[in-house]
Simulated scan of single mutants.
Amino acid sequence: MPCSLASRRGTLPDSTPTGAEAHFRALESLYAAAPINRLFDSVLEIPEGGVARIRFAVDSRYFHAAGAAHGTSYFKMLDDAAFYAANSLVTDRFLLTTAFNLLFTKPLTDGPVIAEGRWVSGQRRVFVAEARLIDASGEEAARGTGTFMRSRIPLAGLPGYRPD
C-alpha cells in the first residue's frame, strides 16, 4: 500500500501557509476585521497574486428609492475587489485608493454578486487594478478601474492582518 512521504517520516505535512499564501490569508483576515464589513454580507478570497474575489449578498438594505442597489454599494464592491487584487502584490504596506472610475451596466437587485478584481499594472508606488460585478445570472452589472498608491501604513501594524 503506498504511503505519503509525510507519513513515512512520521509527521503530517505543514498546513500553515507561508510566503505569498500567508500574505493572502492575512489580507482576507484584514478584510473580515474591517468595521465597514459588518454592514455587508461579504467574504474575500485571494486565489493568487493580482486576483481578488469577493462574494456579496445584496438585499433591500442597499436599495435606493427605485428598488435596486444604490451606487455606493457598487463602489464598495468594485473598489474592494480591485484594491485587494493590487494589495495582494504588496506585502509591507497598505495601499490607498487615489482614484476610481466606474461604469454601471445593469441594476442589481436581491441576490448574490461576485466582485472580481485583477491587477493591471504598476509594481512600485502606484498600482492600477480593475474589477467587475457579476450577478446571479452570470451577467456583468458594473465594472471599474482604480488607481492605488502605496501608503506609509505598515500592514503588520493593522488589526486583523495576521500572517501565520
Rank of each mutant, 00 (worst) to 15 (best):
R53D: 15
H23M: 02
E45N: 15
A131E: 09
G10E: 12
L39R: 12
E28A: 07
L133G: 04
G19R: 01
T97R: 10
Y84Q: 06
F100A: 04
R38V: 07
A65P: 01
F56W: 12
V43K: 15
A136C: 11
M77F: 15
Y161F: 14
L108A: 09
Q123F: 15
I134V: 15
T97P: 07
G49R: 08
A33S: 13
P154K: 10
I153C: 04
Y161W: 12
G10S: 12
T91R: 00
R93S: 08
R132T: 09
S88Y: 05
S88D: 08
R132V: 11
A26D: 03
A129K: 07
S73C: 10
D110M: 02
P159V: 05
L155W: 02
G10N: 12
T105W: 07
G138A: 11
D41T: 10
T97G: 10
A142E: 02
E28R: 01
T105V: 14
F40R: 04
H23F: 02
Y31F: 15
F100Q: 03
L39T: 15
S137G: 13
D135R: 05
A32P: 07
V126C: 03
I46D: 05
F63M: 01
L39P: 04
E140S: 14
K106N: 13
F40T: 05
L158D: 03
P35H: 09
D92K: 07
A142T: 02
G49T: 05
P35W: 15
H64F: 10
R25Q: 12
A57K: 09
E21T: 03
A22G: 06
G49S: 12
L155E: 00
G144V: 03
L89Q: 12
R93Q: 08
T109H: 12
M149V: 10
A129Q: 11
L96I: 07
T11A: 14
T97S: 12
L102N: 01
F75V: 03
L30Y: 05
D135V: 11
P163Y: 09
Y84R: 00
T91H: 02
L89D: 03
D41L: 05
H70C: 00
H23C: 00
P163E: 08
L78K: 06
D110L: 05
N87P: 04
F100V: 02
A136D: 15
G67P: 00
E116P: 09
I153T: 06
G122Q: 05
S121V: 12
N101G: 14
R132A: 10
D41F: 03
L158S: 07
R124I: 10
R152H: 09
I46W: 06
R25N: 07
D164T: 06
A26L: 02
A141V: 03
G67C: 02
G144W: 05
A34C: 11
V58G: 02
A81N: 08
L5T: 09
A81V: 08
H23Q: 01
T145C: 07
L108P: 01
L5Q: 11
E45P: 04
P163W: 11
F127E: 00
D164H: 04
L89M: 13
G117N: 07
G138D: 13
M149N: 08
I54C: 10
I36Y: 14
R8C: 14
S88G: 13
R38C: 12
V58W: 07
F75C: 09
E45T: 12
F40A: 06
V90N: 06
T91N: 04
T11Q: 15
D59K: 01
D110P: 03
A85E: 08
